[in-house]
Amino acid sequence: MVTVADVRALARTLPRSSEHLIRDRVKFRVGAIVYVAFSRDETTMGFGYPKEERDALIAGEPGLFFLPPTSDLRFNWVCCHLDPLDHDHMTELVTEAWRMVVPKFVARQRLGT
Score class of each variant (00 low, 15 high):
Ser18Asn: 12
Ala32Asn: 11
Lys104Ile: 06
Leu93Pro: 01
Arg29Ala: 09
Asp55Gly: 08
Tyr35Asp: 04
Tyr49Thr: 02
Lys27His: 10
Phe75Tyr: 15
Leu111Phe: 15
Pro68Asp: 06
Arg110Trp: 11
His89Cys: 09
Glu61Phe: 03
Ala97Trp: 04
Thr113Ser: 14
Ala59His: 10
His87Gly: 09
His87Ile: 15
Leu82Trp: 06
Trp98Glu: 08
Ala32His: 11
Pro103Phe: 01
Thr113Asn: 13
Phe66Ile: 03
Gly48Ser: 13
Pro103Ile: 03
Gly112Phe: 07
Asn76Pro: 13
Ala9Ile: 01
Arg16Met: 15
Ser39Ile: 08
Thr44Ser: 12
Arg23Asn: 06
Asp72Thr: 12
Glu61His: 12
Val101Ile: 11
Asp83Tyr: 08
Asp6Phe: 00
Met100Glu: 04
Arg23Trp: 07
Val94Gln: 05
Ser17Asp: 06
Asp83Met: 09
Glu96Tyr: 11
Asp24Thr: 03
Ala97Lys: 08
Pro15Asp: 07
Asp72Ile: 06
Gly31Gln: 05
Val4Ala: 08
Thr44Trp: 04
Ala11Tyr: 02
Pro50Glu: 11
Arg74Glu: 11
Ser18Ala: 15
Ile22Phe: 07
Thr91Pro: 03
Arg99Leu: 05
Phe65His: 07
Ser17Pro: 01
Met90Tyr: 03
Lys104Thr: 12
Arg25Met: 11
Gly63Pro: 04
Glu92Ala: 13
Pro69Cys: 02
Phe47Ile: 06
Arg74Pro: 00
Thr43Ala: 09
Gly63Leu: 13
Pro68Arg: 07
Leu85Pro: 09
Val2Phe: 00
Ala97Ser: 15
Thr113Lys: 15
Leu93Met: 13
Leu93Asp: 03
Phe38Pro: 05
Leu10Pro: 02
Arg40Gln: 10
Leu93Asn: 05
Arg40Tyr: 00
Arg74Asn: 09
Leu82Lys: 01
Leu111His: 10
Arg23Tyr: 06
Arg8Val: 02
Arg74Thr: 10
Pro84Phe: 10
Thr91His: 15
Ala5Pro: 00
Val36Cys: 14
Val2Ser: 04
Leu57Lys: 03
Lys27Asp: 00
Glu42Asn: 00
Asp55Tyr: 00
Gly112Met: 09
Phe28Glu: 05
Pro62Glu: 02
Pro84Val: 12
Glu19Phe: 07
Ala32Phe: 05
Arg99His: 11
Phe28Met: 06
Pro68Cys: 09
His20Ile: 05
Arg8Glu: 11
Pro84Glu: 08
His87Asp: 11
Arg23Phe: 10
Asp86Arg: 09
Val26Met: 04
Asn76Gln: 09
Gly46Cys: 05
Arg40Trp: 00
Leu57Gly: 02
Glu52Val: 13
Phe47Thr: 04
His89Phe: 12
Met90Leu: 14
Met100Ser: 01
Gly112Trp: 07
Val94Phe: 06
Pro15Thr: 08
